[in-house]
Each structure stands twice: as structure tokens, then as C-alpha cells.
Design a protein around this nucleic acid. Sequence first.
RNA 1: CGCGGCGUGGAGCAGUCCGGUUAGCUCGCCAGGCUCAUAACCUGGAGGUCGUAGGUUCAAAUCCUACCGCCGCAACCA
Length: 552
Amino acid sequence: MAAKKTWFQTTAIDYPNSRPHIGTAFEKLGADVQARYRRMEGYDVFFLMGNDENTVKVSKRAAELCLDTQAYCDDMARQFREVWDALDISYDTFVQTSSERHKQCCRKFIQKVYDNGHIEKGSYEGWYCEGCEEFKSEKDHKENAGNCPVHRTPLLRRNEPCYFFKLSTFSERLLKYYEENPDFIQPEIRKNEIVSLIKTEGLRDIPISRRNQTWGIQFPFDPEFTIYVWFDALLTYITGIGYGDDEATFRKWWPADTHFIGKDITRFHCALWPAMLWAAGEEPPKKVFAHGFVYLKLPEKVGDKGAGELVKIGKTTLKELGLEYLAEPMEIIKKFSAEAFRYFFLRECPYPGDGDFSPERFVDVYNSELANNLGNLLSRCLTLITKNYGGTLDSTAGWKPMWIDELDPQIQEALKASGGQYNRITWINELSKHIENCSYSVALFTIMNSLLTKSNQYIETNAPWKLVKTDKEAAKKVLFNAVQSLRIASILLKPFIPRSAEAIYTSFNFPKPWAEVQYADAAELLAQPDDLRVTAALDEGGKVKPLFPRIG
RNA sequence: CGCGGCGUGGAGCAGUCCGGUUAGCUCGCCAGGCUCAUAACCUGGAGGUCGUAGGUUCAAAUCCUACCGCCGCAACCA
């Protein structure tokens, strides 16, 4: 038997010096859709996430709070995971870089790179603040007229010994790799940026050590130094699957299929990271996907604070809606649902590009697409079947469902005109492609407008509530077909809004178990083995409970 | 001249690469229909000189030039 296809993906690991916000959540969501989709499609998936804890900032933050750094990190990791769990992010492992295993494996890796001659000792010169006990960037120096932005004291030019990774020697090899693997950096625009960066500016050797730090990972060959952020953080992607510790597991998953990252750290993942791996004798990842950012968009100059009182949706203020602290994902999740949160960002913000989050838009999208279109379609089907047929469309066993598109005379014409070129199978294939390309917003738009809106129209034109009075059999057929749209939609929506999709699917006795459905099942119109019936739980009065209650 | 992106009816976008039917879509707004449904659904309508000024062409949102405006990144902000 052929081995199951594997799929290893990661998100960027986060600094735990502040809580996760909608931007970090956006990244995890996009990755989660991919992981869920791949699982559906039969891949053996491993999804890695984590926190990047070995930074000076983190130890300082802990000190500010008078906490032990490790205790602080552990608590932040708990808080991060709480948010990811609330959002139903289906990660398989969560790496804390302060963990012993990560440290051990990191040392093995760096030793190997050192042994292979890619690390050399030099000296680092820069602007140093004695108060902060750290080097500041040229930008900080320039913008603050030579003073420390924190202490307002003059920055000193300082020179200290430092280890460098010889990144500059990899320029040619990187360019060649990009050329031979055109999909390595996605989307295209990010690839162009990196290529032009290397061609115009070139790559410098990069400092990878800090001296006299108590927090962080010590160099195996020189304990006076600790590893400087990136050289430790990136390694999470391999220590988390057993590099230097569990060879078989590591070989099973590496190289990674996709690293999901923010567009700002593209260069580290596309230039530094492959070079590091080569330096240690490992393969580079197959793909890096750099997603866009989400910007908090508020009217005028409301700012974050005070928005609760000032911004109104209809007659209600944000505060009354419970949306005071907009950048806090838990607030939105608690007030509405993880599903609403997931849907909004995946639908409204293009994953490859930037998007906006505004409370008004959030409510618009939710009401119009989830409540009015999808949720209402479910409600009307459930009610019509329950009221008129006692919940069971009898003698529909063996009936073959129709695809809504094929029931529309106009579309039938169009299908004929295309000479069979375009049909439901190509439609589903296109959707799959969108998901594989991380064009989630396009996929959701298509599901909404090409499937669900049409299904509401179909019900409207055939008016089963009227038809049932004159021709109960004909009305039954209409409902049977309409329900198929819900089956198809729930399958297609499974990676995006898993809970709601399941709720829809299990509202009826569809033959295939929910856990086993694949995208191809949406195109496959299998006959119903039993009479189609409503299996959803109804209220005491027999009323249907809205799946997505309207906001406002 | 650091790099990149954007400017299309009230809002958000597609279309621009490979110029050519009445410039599409979603939301909002207005009118009507329907009443199974979550004041939901369906139909119709108003609303745009496609940032500005030139140029190429039989023909420009689309190609060329200049300019204006907005935004992001710039080696530890996803």
C-alpha cells in the first residue's frame, strides 16, 4: 500500500512580550484552513506553531512584571494557546523555544554549521545604550538625534566580538534555487522583492551571537555567547519535528511543505533560512507563503481607546456590542463566535494581500453572508421540511440529487454552450486551486455567490411553500434539491468554518460520515440511501434555532 | 532618484498583463414582490467624464509620458 502523502506546515512563531492580536490570529487562521483542507484531502498533516522566547525583550518584560522569565514564558504560552484553541486552530504541536529539547537540538545544529565552516568570529560595531544594555538600530540612532529612544541619553559607538553566519556566500545559490523552484516564494510579488533585494543590495554576513546574556541558548563551542534571535527562532521548524533528537520523525516531515509567515519577515525565511539549512547539510523548505497584514480601521481619528463609545453600528455603540478592545481576538470570539471571527477574516481580508478590520464591515459581512444567506437558507429548508413533511421526505431513498446550477434553465444553456467544458467538477477544482493558492477570500466569495445565493433564488422561484398545497410531490423534489446545496456548501466550507459546516451537514441524514467527506464529494452526487430527513435538534415549539443569529 | 503597492458610482473590490459588446461584483440606499425563513428571501432602480494632464490608436479603465494624492516595507512589529 502506498504511504499516505505527508504535509508539514508551520506558522511563524510569536514573541510573547504581548498578547496575540487580530494580526497574529490572521496568520494562524490562514494556516489552519490549509491544514484542515489537506487533512480532508487525505494528507497526513503535521501543523507546527510556537512562541519565540529567547529574546532580550521577553526577559525584560518578565523583569518589569517581577516574574521569573521561564514562568512568564510558560504563562504567555498558555495564553497564546488559549486563543488558538478558542479559534479552533488545529495545530499538532506548539514549540516553546525555551524548552530543553529545542535548546539541545539548536546547539547540535549550530555546531554542525560551525564545523562546516559557515560561522566565523568577527566584531560587531553599532550604537549601544548603556541603560538598555543593547545595541540600537541605525534608524533609532537617526530618528532620535543620536540618543536612546528610551533613556534619552547619547548612544555610544561600541565594538564587541561577535560570531557571524557567512550568509553572503549563499547569494548565487539562493538565486538559482528561486529560479529552479518558481513556487518557492509565494505570492509572486514577494519573490520579486527578494530577488531584487539580493541582486541590488546583496546579502551581508549576519551577526548571530550576543554576549553576556543570561537568558537564551549558549553556543556549544563558546558558552560566553548566546544565539541571536533568528538563528534560534527559525530552527523551531525542525526541532519541533525531532531534528537532532528523533531522526525518523524528522525525516518523515522535512522538508516543510509550507511556512506561513508575515510579509515583513520574508527575507529571513527565503534567504537566511535556506542558507542555514544548506550550511548544516539539510534541504530547504518547499514553499514559503508570505501573507498580508490586517489593519484596524476606525473612522476618523478615534484611535484604539475610546472607540467603544464613539463608533456606532446602527444605533448601538461598539461598547454596547461588547467590542471595546478591537485588537483583542478573545473579545470578538466571546461576543460572537470563533466561526464568525474565522469567516470574517478569511472572507474579507485577502490572505496574499492586506485587508482591513472595521467593526462596521464585520457586522455587514456577518449579517449578509452568514446570517441572511447561509444561515437563513438552512432555516427555511429545515422549517419547510419539518412543517410540511413531518421532518422526513418520504420515499426519497434512491433519489439522485441535482446540482442547483443544472436546474437553472439559463445556466443549462451556458453549460451546453461551453460544450461540457465547464461543469460542477471544474467548479470544485477551481475552488481547490484557490485554497491551495491560499486565495481564501476568493474561494469563500465563490461559494457564497455561485452556490448559496443561487440556492435561495431557486427556492424563491419554485416557492415550495405554495407548491406544497397543490403538488406535494413536486414541492418535495424542490426541497430535496435545495438541501443538496447545503450538503455541498457544508463540505466546501469545512476548512473555513468547521463547526458550522458540521452543524449544517449533520442537520440531515446524508450518507457519508462527516469525518470522511472530501472536496470531491461535493461534486459527486450520490443517491440518498434512506429517505432524506431532518436530524437537527429543534426547539421545544418545533422552531429552528438560527445558526448565525443576526447582529444588531 | 532606497524598494513596493494603490487611486474605478456612498463604502469595499474585479477588470489593466494580451486595447474593442450597454465598465462588472459585494455591501449600503430607493421602489415593488413574497411570506417558508433570522425585519430574513426575490425582482427592479438610482448612482461612475475608471486620480489629473497630455500622447499613441479607427477605438483607452486597459498601452506610453509627466504630475498629484494615499499607504506599506527598509534587516527583532504577523
